[in-house]
Simulated scan of single mutants.
Amino acid sequence: MNFYFSTRHIPALKGLPLAERVKRLDQAAKKLTVPEKTLLNILKLLVIVPVFVLILQTASNWTSLLWALLVFLLYPLLVKPIQNSMSAKYLAPAPEKENA
């Protein structure tokens, strides 16, 4: 499985505008199987739960709030590439443009 950090790098979406890439990727994400969706949701929880744990620790250590912010900012960097990679296999190839 290839990891796609940007929708521009997905072969089936090359040459499409951003709005169309996002639309097709969203449609492909809806086709994920139950085990794939479960795995993705568990991954999301593994990223989100530590943020709340760190926020709860701010009563005794205010720097944990900074760590919570850092973990929260890393969320898209961890989850999106995996979601894009899992959804990419459900994308139909981009239609070829005819040169007239």
Rank of each mutant, 00 (worst) to 15 (best):
A19Q: 10
S64W: 11
P50F: 02
V34R: 09
L32K: 05
V49Y: 04
F52L: 14
L45V: 04
S64I: 04
M86Q: 06
R8H: 11
P93Q: 10
I42W: 09
Q27D: 12
A88H: 00
A68K: 02
L16C: 03
V49P: 00
L43T: 06
L54K: 01
P93D: 04
L73D: 05
P11I: 05
P35C: 09
T7N: 08
T58W: 12
L56W: 13
F52C: 06
Q83V: 05
A28V: 03
A68H: 03
Y4K: 01
M1Y: 09
P50C: 07
P93Y: 13
A92G: 04
Q57W: 04
K31N: 10
M1Q: 04
A19V: 06
V49F: 07
E36V: 07
S64Q: 15
L65D: 06
A88T: 02
L78R: 01
N2P: 15
N84A: 12
W62P: 13
L54I: 08
L66V: 15
L66A: 15
L45F: 11
A12K: 05
W67F: 14
L16G: 03
L25R: 00
L32H: 01
P50T: 01
G15R: 06
P17K: 08
L13A: 05
S6A: 10
L43S: 05
L39S: 12
L91M: 13
R8Q: 07
L46H: 07
L56D: 13
Y4A: 01
Q83N: 10
A88Y: 00
K44N: 12
N2R: 13
L43D: 00
L74K: 10
F3G: 06
N2H: 09
T63V: 07
K14S: 05
T58N: 09
P50N: 04
S85Y: 04
S85Q: 07
L73Y: 11
V53C: 14
P76R: 05
K80S: 14
P95L: 14
E96L: 11
V71P: 01
A94S: 14
L18T: 11
L13E: 01
K14P: 05
P35H: 14
N84V: 07
F5A: 04
P93K: 13
L91H: 13
L73Q: 12
T63Q: 12
P17Q: 06
V34H: 09
V47K: 00
K31C: 08
M1L: 08
S60V: 09
A12Y: 02
L70F: 11
L69C: 15
F52E: 04
L73F: 15
I42Q: 06
A94G: 10
M86S: 03
L13R: 00
P81T: 04
A19D: 14
L69Q: 10
K23T: 11
